[in-house]
Computed example of a mutant assay.
Amino acid sequence: MIPDDFIVRTMKRSEIDLAITWAASEGWNPGRYDAESFYQTDKNGFLLGELNGEPVGCISAVAYDQHFGFLGFYIVKPQFRGQGLGMKIWKTAMDYLGADRNIGLDGVVAQQDNYKKSGFQIAYKNIRYQGVGGGVMPAGIIDLKTVSFEELVAYDCQFFPSKRPVFLRHWIEQPESTAFGFLKNGYLVGYGVIRPAHTGFRIGPLFANDEQIAEALFQALLAENPHAPVFFDVPDANVQAINLVQRYQLEPVFQTARMYTKEIPNLPIDRVFAVTSLELG
């Protein structure tokens, strides 16, 4: 039975940093400056569970638009698990996003069966690979900030179920991050972002029209951070992306499944070489 003094409420901005700290403790290695990008995307979409005033669990339920939302940060502190607190947090998040939206999440292996019971189906697996930064900057790479923001938003929405201009505006401006683009005939045909994480750096997203463009962007992002550990989450459904990580002899270290409540979005997965994040999709 859930205690009467357990409540679920909307987080304040400062409390999202707590969720990121908990995520780091779970071994998920979130970005060090992700909180601001996340909060600005949906200021009401981060929920905190409190027991007698003590934070004990959290979840994010970000509504991108009226048709699509994404769940992340579903955590209950270990000593408070098994009491039904997590289920109340979960139900509050699902109620916030509503039954009409298609809802996505990245589920860890241990929770995937539970998510299936809640109506989620697996679209593909995301495999986290680890490598080491370094190498030579390839030709043809540009600073993404030289591309018009409108063109970036239009390109990005080919790979995501919703337009996300607010998120992108903050994501590409994160401190200590780098965002590169690749142009062909004057048009954006690929981009990638690398940002500092609790351990090393994380690449995401890495979207490109073909494997050669993706590899050039990948080399550029590695070259920006010599000798540092670098991680990125690759859809196993993209054979070209798997070929790329195998050529560079990267090591798989972690796995999740991208799951949805309704139809699996019709996205060009063969051009998604790294997903943006596991928390917001």
Rank of each mutant, 00 (worst) to 15 (best):
S177P: 02
G192Q: 08
E279H: 08
L206P: 01
G107R: 01
V153A: 07
Q79L: 12
A99Y: 05
I7K: 04
G69W: 07
I203K: 05
R128M: 13
G181Y: 02
E176D: 13
S14K: 08
Y115L: 12
Q112P: 03
Q130R: 10
T199Q: 14
E215T: 09
G84C: 14
S14M: 09
V109M: 09
A93H: 00
A220C: 04
A93L: 01
D106K: 01
R9N: 05
Q111R: 02
R247I: 15
A61D: 04
V272K: 00
L152N: 08
Q79S: 13
N126P: 03
E150L: 12
S25N: 15
A61L: 06
Q40G: 06
L47R: 01
L188A: 03
Q40T: 05
T21N: 12
Y39F: 12
P55E: 15
Y260D: 11
Q240P: 00
A237S: 15
G200L: 04
F149A: 12
I7F: 03
L47Q: 05
I127C: 06
Y96T: 06
Q40H: 08
P3A: 14
F73D: 07
V136K: 14
I59Q: 06
F160N: 08
L267R: 04
V234D: 02
K125S: 15
P252Y: 05
I242C: 02
A154L: 07
P252V: 15
Y129E: 03
A110Y: 02
Q249C: 09
H170I: 09
G119S: 07
Q255G: 15
G49L: 06
M94L: 11
C58V: 04
Q174L: 13
I142H: 04
M94K: 02
G98C: 11
A123P: 04
G31V: 02
K43A: 14
G69I: 04
Q112H: 05
F201D: 03
M1W: 03
R164F: 00
A110T: 05
I269A: 02
R202V: 11
D4V: 15
P226D: 07
A257Y: 03
V147T: 08
F273S: 02
G133I: 01
E54I: 05
F201L: 04
F6E: 05
G190D: 08
L280P: 00
Q130I: 11
G181W: 01
R195P: 01
T41K: 11
F218S: 03
N243L: 15
L71A: 10
A241N: 01
V132S: 02
K88S: 13
N209T: 07
I2P: 00
V8S: 01
K125C: 13
